[in-house]
């Protein structure tokens, strides 16, 4: 070997073998999920990448913080755990998934990094699985942290064990509703984002999907209910069917079917026994999203 000018930057330090432990596939998937979870909040990225997640979390938590102040002055809690401020949650979560789902999947497509993953011990299905687990967890943080702040802000001001117990019992359905939102929104937004490596297109596709379906459902609902779905006790079939059009009205339909309250934060009237249809359509949306996501990467591994 001649030492030419071009290799002057290559220091002659001997190569060392690696004899240490190697992670098994499951541990690698866990590492990828953790890495993706962090990137959903912009960690390991530039400061710019943290703007949307931080702003979204602050915005969503604001009502809970205001509640804490209000309750400390002796007022009752006015925000429901299971509905939170549903309009705000829709807008903020829509923006969050539209901006951050492409961060998790479109980037790797765009940069064509996938062959590097698939040439490692991971299997093609492991990649979308890790991304899905990570993004569901990220959505959970976005949704549940404000709910938990609401809970914490309330129980520090109420007095007596029974009051705390009542709050806790109200909290649990709220957390479950949040879980439903996170599980479905993460799946659908990742499936849409995985269709394109162009971030702007992916963001647009997700925003349009969630926004248009919501508009569609709301327009039909309002036409039928004269703007106050909660006031309607006997919903017509048209109203019930309208609620199937959008993930958000599906969430609310399932919530009400499982005994959630009405009031001004309800999006759909009580579906009654029709609620099972809401549940089935929601599960179908979830299944289609996950199957689509898995199929996308089975194909990507071969190209």
């Amino acid at each position: 070997m001649s030492a030419s000018a071009t290799e002057s930057v290559i220091h002659d330090i001997g190569y060392r073998r690696y004899d240490g432990p190697r992670l098994r596939r499951a541990a690698i998937v866990r590492a990828l999920a953790w890495h993706s979870f962090r990137s959903a909040f912009g960690f390991g990225r530039s400061a710019k990448a943290k703007v949307v997640p931080v702003l979204a979390l602050v915005l969503l938590s604001l009502p809970a913080v205001i509640n804490a102040v209000s309750v400390s002055q002796g007022n009752p809690r006015t925000i429901g755990y299971d509905t939170y401020i549903v309009g705000l949650r829709i807008v903020v979560m829509l923006i969050f998934v539209a901006v951050q789902a492409p961060e998790l999947v479109s980037r790797d497509l765009r940069n064509r990094v996938l062959p590097l993953y698939f040439s490692r011990p991971l299997r093609p299905v492991d990649y979308p699985f890790a991304k899905y687990v990570a993004f569901t967890a990220a959505c959970l943080v976005m949704i549940e942290v404000p709910v938990l702040v609401l809970y914490a802000g309330t129980i520090v001001s109420v007095h007596g064990g029974s009051a705390v117990w009542a709050e806790t019992r109200a909290l649990i359905p709220g957390l479950l509703v949040g879980l439903m939102w996170a599980v479905v929104m993460a799946a659908t937004s990742l499936a849409l984002a995985s269709l394109t490596g162009r971030r702007a297109f992916a963001t647009g596709a997700i925003a349009i999907f969630f926004f248009l379906t919501e508009i569609l459902a709301v327009v039909v609902l309002h036409a039928e209910t004269r703007g106050d779905p909660a006031a309607l006790t006997h919903a017509s079939t048209a109203v019930k069917v309208a609620g199937l059009f959008s993930p958000f009205t599906l969430f609310d339909g399932v919530r009400r079917w499982l005994g959630g309250t009405g009031g001004d934060q309800a999006l759909v009237p009580d579906p009654g026994s029709f609620g099972v249809v809401y549940a089935i359509v929601l599960l179908a949306l979830l299944a289609a999203s996950l199957l689509g996501l898995a199929a996308r990467y089975r194909k990507a591994a071969l190209s």
Binding site: Y18, G20, P21, R22, L23, R24, A27, I28, A31, L32, H35, L116, Y117, R120, P121, L122
Partner: peptide
């Protein structure tokens, strides 16, 4: 480093 993790190396390694 990330790609090393994906190859099965523990974080420090």
């Amino acid at each position: 480093t990330h790609m090393g993790r994906m190859s099965g190396l523990p974080a420090t390694a």
